[in-house]
C-alpha cells in the first residue's frame, strides 16, 4: 500500500531540523523491512505573524510503499520517535495517509493548498483527517504541528509542491553530465527548463556542487536554466541555484 508520512514542528533553533527526523523515519521503513521509502520533500506553508513556527514554517513529507500489515508498526515507530526526538518547546505533529484509501483526495490537497495562504486550525485538521480516514496525531507541546503535517501530506499528494531534501549526487567530470546520466544516477524523472521544456537525454548539463530536484506534475524534476556558458565551461544548460528554487 502507498503511504505518505509527514511531520511538522519538531525543531527549535538549536536542534536538528524536521527534515532530519523525516529522513530517519524514511530510512527505518527500509531498514525494518516494512517496505520501500521514497525521497523526503519540503513544503512551504503560510508565513504569518499569528502562526507559531520556529523559523520557516515548512513541513517534511516522504512517501513509501509498505506491506499493509506493517502500517501499525510504522505509525507506532513514528509516534515514539517524534515524542522522543522532537526538540524542547516544539509542537510536533504526525500524519500518515494511506493514499490508496482516501476517498476524496482532492479535499486533502485543498487543505494543503489553503495552508500556504490561510491560517488553519487544529480542529479543522483533525476533522478532515477523521473524515478521510487519515492518521493524525500530536506528540508534545501544543500539538499545533498536526496542521502542517496534514497540509504537507496534501501538498505532496498534489504532486506540484516542494523541493526534495538533500543534494543530488551525480558522478561526472568537469561538473558536466548529460541528461541521460543524471536520470540513470538519481531519482530524477526529467530535466526541464524553468518554462517546462523537457531536455533530451544527450543534452549536457552543468552541475555545480548544489543540485536539487523539485516535485512537479507528480515527478521529480531537475530544473535547469539557459546561460551563455561563461561560468559553466561553455555548457549552456545549468542546474538551477538555491535562489532560483527558493519559491518551490
Amino acid at each position: 500500500m502507498k503511504v505518505l508520512v509527514c511531520v511538522d514542528d519538531t525543531d527549535n533553533m538549536e536542534s536538528p531540523g524536521t527534515g532530519h527526523l523525516a529522513s530517519t523515519m524514511a530510512e527505518a521503513v527500509d531498514r525494518f523491512g516494512w517496505g520501500q521509502s521514497f525521497p523526503v520533500t519540503r513544503h512551504q506553508l503560510f508565513v504569518h505573524a499569528d502562526i507559531p513556527y520556529t523559523s520557516h514554517n515548512s513541513s517534511m513529507c516522504f512517501g513509501a510503499e509498505i506491506v499493509e500489515h506493517h502500517l501499525g508498526s510504522l505509525i507506532d515507530y513514528a509516534s515514539d520517535y517524534l515524542a522522543r526526538e522532537s526538540a524542547a518547546g516544539s509542537d510536533p505533529g504526525l500524519c500518515v495517509a494511506c493514499t490508496d484509501r482516501i476517498g476524496e483526495p482532492e479535499k486533502l490537497i485543498r487543505f494543503g493548498q489553503r495552508a500556504k495562504s490561510e491560517i488553519l486550525t487544529m480542529d479543522e485538521a483533525y476533522g478532515l483527517a477523521q473524515a478521510l480516514g487519515i492518521h493524525l496525531s500530536e506528540h508534545g507541546g501544543t500539538g499545533q504541528g498536526v496542521i502542517g503535517a496534514l497540509a504537507g501530506a496534501g501538498l505532496r499528494l498534489s504532486g506540484n509542491d516542494g523541493r526534495l531534501k538533500g543534494k543530488l549526487k551525480i558522478r561526472c567530470e568537469n561538473n558536466t553530465a548529460t541528461v541521460g546520466e543524471i536520470l540513470a544516477q538519481t531519482v530524477v524523472d526529467m530535466v526541464c527548463s524553468l518554462d517546462g521544456t523537457v531536455l533530451r537525454e544527450d543534452e549536457p548539463i552543468y552541475v555545480a556542487d548544489w543540485v536539487k530536484a523539485v516535485l512537479k506534475d507528480g515527478k521529480y524534476i531537475l530544473p535547469v536554466f539557459y546561460s551563455d556558458g561563461t561560468y559553466s565551461r561553455g555548457i549552456n544548460w545549468r542546474a538551477c541555484t538555491k535562489q532560483q528554487l527558493r519559491d518551490f
Binding site: P16, H48, S55
Partner: peptide, 30 residues
C-alpha cells in the same frame, strides 16, 4: 541552517542563518 532551508547561493548569508525567522515581508534576527 540545515540544507533544506538554505535559499541564498552564497552560504554565509543571513538568509541562510538558522537564527533568522522569516516573516511575510522579511526576516527577524533572533
Amino acid at each position: 541552517d540545515v540544507e533544506e532551508e538554505l535559499v541564498a547561493d552564497q552560504l554565509r548569508s543571513c538568509y541562510n542563518c538558522r537564527f533568522r525567522r522569516w516573516t511575510s515581508a522579511s526576516f527577524i534576527c533572533r
